[in-house]
Design a protein around this nucleic acid. Structure first.
Length: 372
DNA sequence: GAACAGAAAAC
DNA sequence: CCTCCTTTCTGTTC
């Protein structure tokens, strides 16, 4: 049977939620910011509505630049916890539209052929419920849009394709509030003229390397010898580039059960290499992180300190423990040690600092380093 | 094979 | 002027 995948992408999610919550904001240029706290407007744009985009404001750009582009825009701080709640409701709603495994061993989350990609995006495998028919998938897509609007008063853009790669790229074609289906026979016509970075998974670094090889479009990439791509990018990436350029993607829509790592990073109020100042910020991040770990009852075995220096260079220092731990005392101590080691080994000041735990596993019994 | 560091990508 | 989060892969070293 022909495979059919739907990608749902909420339109300017954070900004749309704020507009929904406060009708006075509607019609105005709205910029949702991640403020660093260094100065009044230091930070970057997380999301903005389409009214703000009309002035050239984009996510990722410094808030100060957005302010220059449109001084009258409204600048609001992100309310991540709130958006996460809205997101959870939407994801549970969307899950119902994905194919369901009849496996009674599995819980509800594992039963659906559903994959949350980020706070505002998800893939739905709909091969079975559409019988591989794109027309039925399109009707299903419109139904999802209508019900999502009725339920949440939020719009989304939908992409439908023969796999995740094409579905994801299709949802970008018409937004906001769009729906685009790309049937298998339309894939090459769709992909060939695209610029390299428009291929999902191909970023600026790879694009530059490919341009040096005389490749400008996805069609030109598809025509290249896979062996040449492998010699430049390694086996895995070389094969991926060749396949993706043809729109081939066999990766399954799979439920991810919770992240494999949890991290927090923040910006210091000024550049410094004073361990006291750096550590006091780290303590806040640790607290936040412990909260997340406790909520999920997880222990960790790897701790990584992240440092971003004055020149925006990112460096890490990590430690693997012999046994998993989960308590804040251990995490604090390891963090202090990593920070000390880092400062011994590296000159220069910190601009940002972060802490991350990995190798997560369900906590049972033991909680502290001192239990060993 | 494990530990560690870093790059790349997308959000 | 320049946020924050996660995943995946690669290279190096032991």
């Amino acid at each position: 049977m022909q495979r059919v995948v739907i990608h749902v992408d909420m339109d300017s999610f954070f900004a749309a939620i704020e507009e929904r919550e406060n009708p006075k904001l509607r019609g105005k240029a709205l910029v949702i910011c991640m403020f660093s706290g260094r100065s009044e407007l230091s930070g970057s744009v997380s999301t903005c509505n389409y009214a703000a985009r009309a002035y050239g404001i984009k996510s990722g750009m410094p808030c100060s630049r957005a302010k220059k582009l449109m001084p009258d825009a409204l600048f609001l701080p992100v309310r991540k916890a709130f958006y996460n709640k809205v997101s959870a409701d939407i994801m549970i709603f969307l899950m119902e539209y994905a194919d369901q495994a009849s496996d009674l061993e599995k819980n509800l989350f594992e039963q659906a052929a559903f994959e949350q990609l980020s706070v505002d995006e998800a893939f739905l495998e709909v091969t079975e419920r559409t019988g591989g028919d794109f027309s039925r998938a399109i009707r299903l897509g419109f139904q999802i849009k209508a019900e999502l609007w009725a339920k949440e008063k939020l719009s989304c853009s939908i992409g439908i394709g023969p796999n995740k790669l094409i579905a994801k790229m299709a949802s970008d074609v018409q937004k906001p509030n769009g729906l685009t289906a790309i049937r298998p026979e339309e894939v090459s016509t769709f992909l060939n003229p695209l610029k390299l970075t428009q291929l999902w998974g191909l970023g600026s670094v790879t694009a530059e390397k490919l341009q040096e090889m005389g490749i400008e479009t996805v069609g030109e990439l598809a025509a290249r010898d896979v062996l040449e791509l492998i010699s430049s990018f390694g086996k895995r990436k070389g094969i991926w580039l060749k396949q993706a350029a043809f729109g081939i993607d066999e990766s399954p829509v799979r439920a991810r059960q919770g992240s494999e790592q949890i991290g927090r990073i923040a910006t210091l109020s000024e550049d410094t290499r004073d361990p006291k100042i750096i550590y006091s910020l780290l303590e806040k991040l640790i607290e936040d992180l412990i909260e997340k770990l406790e909520a999920r009852e997880l222990a960790f075995r790897v701790v990584t300190l992240t440092a971003v220096n004055s020149g925006f260079r990112m460096q890490t220092k990590s430690r693997t423990l012999n046994h998993p731990v989960s308590d804040r005392t251990s995490l604090r101590q390891i963090t202090r040690e990593l920070l000390e080691l880092y400062l011994e080994e590296n000159p220069g000041e910190f601009r940002r600092v972060g802490i991350r735990v990995e190798a997560l596993q369900a906590k049972k019994g033991q909680t502290s380093l001192f239990d060993y």
